[in-house]
Design a protein around this nucleic acid. Structure first.
Lengths: 108, 108
DNA sequence: ACAACGCATAACCGTTTGGTTATGGTTTAT
DNA sequence: ATAAACCATAACCAAACGGTTATGCGTTGT
């Protein structure tokens, strides 16, 4: 899996509508643009553009099926953000390091 | 500690210059606006404005000392972002839950 | 065949953003 | 006392953003 530009990931998730779309896809799985439009509360073209931004960040993948396009969340594309938090979120890093140490000792 | 609006946190960290400032403060501790300006590669007013945005997200705190203002990173303000990742980063949550389970069993 | 649907793209628009230079207020140094 | 330093704010600007309506192309239903 090719890592997306961290910039794209942070940028994509800075918009609440885009986060809502990603959250919806995470909670309820693959959905069409039509379904997402009903959910998002903005026009269909707006949703399409948001999906383009999420695509650039590799946060969603799509699958064409006839006239429909199904989108699904690609959670592991969050890796750059997790990495960043791991490096710069001190309290978090501490907590995580402790846990990771444990895991490594138990699953070598 | 009052939690900042998640929107403000995501928004603040969506800009690479702002992330760089926050990273610098995390790595090398408290610094004046002057020092940050030399580091950031943009004008001093630009840095001041970035610091205002970071302040709004509670990601930095400041301390006046004569004519200088010292800023420092406030890493626990990243909590809303960590929470979000915990909820919507599936692979991550899974990994973390496993680790947390271990920790709880070992440190009750 | 043809009407309707699903989606992406184009064209457009007001607002926000990230940058600049200019200015002014407070504090320090000479 | 005066000059210089530090910082925030104001004023300004081009570009990016998030939204809209209009359009067009492929697909499906009748």
């Amino acid at each position: 899996m090719t890592l997306a530009n961290p910039n794209h990931v942070f940028r994509a998730l800075s918009d609440p509508t885009r986060r809502a779309i990603f959250e919806e896809l995470t909670r309820h799985g693959e959905q069409t643009v039509h379904a997402l439009t009903r959910y998002a509360g903005v026009s269909q073209p707006a949703v399409s553009k948001h999906l383009t931004v999420l695509k650039r960040a590799k946060l969603v993948r799509h699958r064409r099926d006839g006239r429909e396009t199904h989108y699904r969340a690609q959670a592991d594309a969050l890796a750059p953000m997790v990495d960043w938090l791991d490096r710069y979120g001190a309290f978090w890093r501490e907590r995580f390091d402790k846990l990771e140490g444990l895991l490594n000792r138990m699953e070598p």
